[in-house]
Write a protein that binds this DNA or RNA. Structure first.
Length: 221
DNA sequence: ACGGCGATGATCT
DNA sequence: GATCATCGCCGTT
C-alpha cells in the first residue's frame, strides 16, 4: 500500500494503526537506514490534553498545524529526540509518535555510528542486567528509534512523501494483527487506548505508566 | 523481571 | 520555575 497524502490527512487516531508495518527510509547519515514501524501513539490536538498542541499553536508545535505527512521532532528530558508524523488537514493539529521499529537495512551502519547503541545490542552482548537482548531492542522506544534514524530538530518539517526528502515514508503496512493500550508515560487521558503495536513484535517497547508526581517537599535547604 | 531515580535542557506559564 | 510523549543504571525480588 503506497503512502498517500489523503490517508495521512485523516485524524491521527485513524492513521496510527495504518502506520504499523510501514517502511521508513532515512538517508540523513552517510548510509541508508530502513525500518519497519512496530509501535506508535496517536496524539490529537485541541481535544487531547496529552498533545503538545492542546494549548494551541506555538513555535515548537507549529508543524503539527500544517499539512499531513511531515516530520515533527521534539527534544525531551534534556537529552532525547522523538519523531512524529503529522496528520490531519492543514489548520488541525494532529500527529502520530513513532515509538518503535525493527531495522531492516543499515544495521551495521547504525551499530558503527552510535557506540552507545552498539553497547546495547551489539554482537556478543548477552541479555540481562540492564542490557536489552539483541538488535530487536535497538529501536525500541521513541528516543532510540529517532537515534537509529539519525533524526533531530533540524529534520522537523521534512515532507515524508517527497521523493527527494532524506526521510521518506515508503509504504504503509498491509494491516497486520495489532493491539492497543494506554499511551506510555502519559498521566492525563490515561483512559484512551491510543497506543498501537504489532502483536508479537519483539521490538515493541515495554509499558511504563507516568511517573507519579512526587508530593512537593515542604522545605529544602 | 521489575521499580526507583538522576541526568539535563528546551519550552511554556 | 515546573514540567516533561525517556533512557540507562542500579538495587531489590
Amino acid at each position: 500500500v503506497p503512502a498517500a497524502r489523503e490517508v495521512l490527512t485523516l485524524p491521527a487516531l485513524q492513521v496510527a494503526p495504518l502506520l504499523l508495518g510501514a517502511t521508513l527510509i532515512s538517508t540523513v547519515g552517510a548510509e541508508q537506514v530502513t525500518v519497519r514501524i512496530t509501535e506508535v501513539e496517536a496524539y490529537e490536538g485541541a481535544e487531547d490534553p496529552a498533545s503538545h498542541a492542546f494549548h494551541g499553536q506555538t513555535k515548537r508545535n507549529a508543524v503539527m498545524f500544517g499539512p499531513a505527512g511531515h516530520l515533527y521532532c521534539y527534544f525531551v528530558y534534556g537529552m532525547h529526540w522523538c519523531a512524529n508524523i503529522t496528520c490531519g488537514p492543514e489548520g488541525v493539529a494532529s500527529a502520530v509518535l513513532l515509538r518503535a521499529a525493527e531495522i531492516t537495512a543499515g544495521l551495521d551502519y547504525v551499530l558503527a555510528r552510535t557506540p552507545v547503541v552498539a553497547r546495547l545490542a551489539g554482537p556478543g552482548r548477552p541479555a540481562g542486567r540492564g542490557r536489552p537482548a539483541g538488535p530487536a531492542k535497538l529501536a525500541s522506544g521513541p528516543a532510540r528509534l529517532a537515534r537509529c534514524l539519525g533524526l533531530d530538530g533540524s529534520h522537523t518539517g521534512l515532507d515524508l512523501l517527497d521523493p527527494a526528502s532524506p526521510v521518506r515514508l515508503a509504504a504503509l503496512g498491509p494491516g497486520q494483527p495489532s493491539e492497543t493500550g494506554p499511551r506510555v508515560g502519559v498521566a492525563v487521558a490515561a483512559d484512551r487506548p491510543w497506543r498501537f503495536w504489532l502483536a508479537d513484535a519483539p521490538s515493541v517497547s515495554s509499558y511504563r505508566a507516568a511517573r507519579k508526581k512526587s508530593a512537593r517537599p515542604t522545605r529544602q535547604t
